[in-house]
Design a protein around this nucleic acid. Structure first.
Length: 550
RNA sequence: UGGGGUGUCGCCAAGCGGUAAGGCACGGGACUUUGACUCCCGCAUUCGUAGGUUCGAAUCCUGCCACCCCAGCCA
């Protein structure tokens, strides 16, 4: 973990200031996801800020499901969200539901009516929009704005009792229809929705709006700092208004920060949902998805994601972080821990002509060079092997260090071999390469060096495996194409399957285990992996500075 | 257009009146039985822009420009 980013972000400075000036003794934050989808890496940024700010100041962070709209939410997502947070390694103090506070919200709404700062409005949705005015013109007062407290109280009670159909009335805050801030033009606080709620069942048919419920939830829980993304900045005056009117003594402070964006990745739930529902991906945990379950299945470690988040930082400027940064973090993590194995994704046969028939020699290979405690394993070297198709060329470009006619390479951990001839099929594809080995060059013996080293597998005992190679789901934005639907930007090569071989020992590896396949990339045994049918996801390729110059 | 925000290297991001941190990416070199890793070196005379204040400005002031958010009975 890089703690090099020693400077404080602006939120820490605000909190320190509050501790200094308001004498706060306990810092309380909250992570408030709406249970209507799976968490993605953008949520991970938000939650990591919520949890780490609390932790940094010795406070605590609650997990609160923001479930004030029964039409969109589902219990299905609650457990998944908790799983993802745990997986990332964060710990909440308490789990709450916004719906836990429905009674209090109702009482406070009644309080506001009694104070004359809330009223029941009979305007339809369209009428309300008309009355609201525009960005440049002030709105007009609702004709229902000046109902008596008694009438409002009676009407609100009837709303709660279910006397009115959906959409016929709302409870509105009485603020200022001429406010330059649209959010202050008598915003709705309660609407009528005759629908069962995943937590409260049929108890309610009126539900509080986010703008009313959120500050109340925060205040009740003793949240000192309510951290959220930039789009809520214009809601802060309303947030403060609710806290003030409800007369909470301890006033939570809302602070906004920029959300995370990644290149060639869309983070909106609407978009992710379409990918899943329209079959562009296999599910929420498709390894190409930016969801936490997708990244996890792909093979990303929680550590690498947290490291990434700490490197990205916290600020208020809109930004788009390059995926290369994320990839760097997982490479750095796996480079230190992932055992080095051999896998040939696109095999061709290599025959060692001067190797005796039916003879093998066990080659010892370090699991993790530089770390003896990781141990060694043996791989049988014999007359017939597999090498990677791209590691042989009969018409090599300049600076080609791999196998070519009359050229020499070392087979990793074994011998130096010299290419003598090759065979092709009718189409000109190489089918078999022939070579001779130099017995004096067994690994660790002899002085000869060659420029290239190839990974290989014994033909006899290699185990067939499927490799799934992933790239970004979306192609880069092409200038004016921004108006195009995302389906026009889908990368046809976002998943490519290869059928090759792995070391025999890898068939029985556990699902989720990660390896570096030497010279190829970092891979993870997929959920679909079995000993009988091994499947590996490419988490990320190795960096490759080989450039064909010509 | 009214309001609220933001503009520092290709991408993130420090900087808080004393003369541009760091990371990623990129380029060069060393090392190498992974063209990986590691290690060196390079990479903003300039901070959206134009003025002003000051001995001194990315930091203060003024104007302008660009981009983002707000007109849900979504969150």
């Amino acid at each position: 973990m890089e703690e090099s980013l020693s400077s404080k972000n602006f939120i820490e400075e605000f909190i320190e200031q509050d501790i200094r000036e308001k004498g706060l003794s306990h810092i309380q934050t909250r992570f408030p996801p709406e249970p209507n989808g799976y968490l993605h890496i953008g949520h991970a940024k938000a939650l990591s800020i919520d949890f780490s700010m609390a932790e940094k100041f010795g406070g605590s962070c609650n997990l609160r499901f923001d479930d004030t709209n029964p039409t969109k939410e589902d219990e299905e997502f609650v457990d998944a969200i908790m799983d993802d947070i745990c997986w990332l390694g964060f710990h909440w103090a308490h789990v709450f539901f916004g719906s836990d506070y429905f009674d209090t919200c109702y009482e406070l709404a009644v309080k506001l009516i009694k104070k004359g700062v809330a009223y029941v409005c009979d305007l339809s949705k369209d009428e309300m929009r008309e009355y609201r005015g525009t960005l440049t013109e002030p709105g007009r007062n609702s004709p229902w704005r000046d109902r008596s407290v008694e009438e409002n109280l009676a009407l609100f009670a009837r709303m709660k009792a279910g006397d009115f159909p959906d959409g016929t009335r709302t409870l509105r805050a009485k603020i200022d229809m001429a406010s330059p801030n649209m959010n202050m033009r008598d915003p709705a606080m309660y609407r009528i929705i005759h629908m069962a709620h995943h937590h409260t069942g049929d108890k309610w048919c009126i539900y509080p709006m986010y703008d009313f419920a959120h500050p109340i939830q925060d205040a009740i829980e003793g949240v000192t700092h309510s951290l959220c993304s930039l789009e809520y900045e214009a809601h802060r005056p309303l947030y403060d208004w609710v806290v003030e009117q409800c007369e909470f003594q301890q006033k939570p402070r809302q602070i906004e920060f920029a959300r995370l964006n990644l290149t060639n990745t869309m983070m909106s739930k609407r978009y992710l949902r379409r990918l899943v529902e329209e079959g562009f991906v296999a599910g929420w945990d498709d390894p190409r998805m930016p969801t936490l379950c997708g990244l996890r299945r792909r093979g990303y470690t929680a550590e690498s994601i947290r490291d990434f988040l700490s490197r990205v930082g916290v600020a208020k400027a809109d930004s788009v972080v390059e995926t290369a940064m994320l990839e760097h973090c997982i490479r750095e993590d796996l480079n230190a821990h992932a055992h080095r194995m051999m896998a040939v994704l696109d095999p061709i046969r290599l025959v060692v002509d001067n190797w005796p028939e039916n003879t093998v020699q066990n080659i010892a290979l370090d699991n993790l060079p530089g770390d003896e405690t990781a141990g060694v394993r043996a791989l049988p070297f014999g007359r017939e092997l597999y090498i990677e198709r791209e590691d042989f060329s009969y018409d090599p470009p300049k600076k080609y260090f791999r196998l070519k006619p009359d050229g020499e390479v070392r087979l990793k951990g074994a011998y130096i071999v010299k290419c003598t001839r090759y065979e092709t099929d009718a189409a000109g594809n190489v089918t078999t390469v022939y070579c001779t080995y130099d017995p004096e060059t067994r690994s660790g013996e002899g002085q000869r060096k060659v420029k290239g080293t190839l990974h290989w597998l014994p033909l006899q005992s290699a185990v067939a495996a499927e490799f799934r190679l992933y790239e970004d789901l979306l192609l880069p934005e092409s200038g004016e194409a921004e108006a195009l639907d995302f389906t026009q930007r889908l990368n046809p090569a976002s998943i490519v399957k290869r059928h090759g071989f792995v070391e025999p020992g890898l068939a029985a590896c556990p699902v989720g285990s990660r390896y570096q396949f030497m010279r190829v990339g970092y891979f993870c045994a997929d959920l679909d992996h079995t000993a009988a049918a091994p499947v590996f996801n490419r988490i990320v390729s190795l960096k490759d500075s080989f450039k064909v110059v010509n």
